[in-house]
């Protein structure tokens, strides 16, 4: 079984460290990096504050990675998401997927970031250059499976 890593961290992310974990058994390694953007919906953003429910976020991330692994052939999958205050241009999230085939790596990586945005308990508040700040309106997660 590949060595998956799902982490919520308050420290700066070094994406190269994630991709270095890919080993020689796979022919492809794909790195996705999310970066803090200086604008959103017409407003100039100065920084972001991320908050998470860390224990649950890591659990949901592990579930998402397991789902990706069941759909596509992947080697090691690493996901790391930063919380706290991030400045423009800093890395908020990085996903590294290794795979014997590049198609599977692209598909699995896309799945992980899309599902992360839908259901991992992380929130961001945008701090605007005009001094205001606002929690973003995001996706409402639903119970899955038997839910109970």
């Amino acid at each position: 079984m590949a060595d998956d890593r799902c982490t919520i961290t308050g420290d700066p992310i070094d994406p190269c460290e994630l991709i270095a974990a890919a080993d020689g058994t796979d022919g492809a390694a794909l790195l996705f990096v999310g970066i803090v953007r200086d604008h959103n919906e017409g407003r100039e953003v100065g920084h972001l504050d991320y908050q998470a429910y860390p224990e649950m976020a890591e659990t949901v991330l592990r579930n998402i990675v397991a789902e990706a692994r069941s759909r596509w052939e992947t080697g090691a999958v690493s996901v790391i998401h930063r919380i706290g205050r991030l400045e423009i241009g800093e890395v908020s999230v990085a996903i590294a997927v290794s795979s014997p085939h590049r198609g599977d790596a692209y598909s699995a990586s896309r799945y992980v970031i899309e599902e992360l945005k839908k259901r991992v308990p992380i929130w961001k508040r945008e701090g605007y250059l005009d001094g205001e700040s606002e929690w973003l309106r995001g996706s409402t997660p639903q119970p899955i499976g038997e839910g109970s």
Binding site: S92, K117, P121, I122, W123
Partner: peptide
């Protein structure tokens, strides 16, 4: 209590 999530 989980408000709409907005990670990424």
């Amino acid at each position: 209590f989980i408000p709409p999530v907005s990670g990424g």
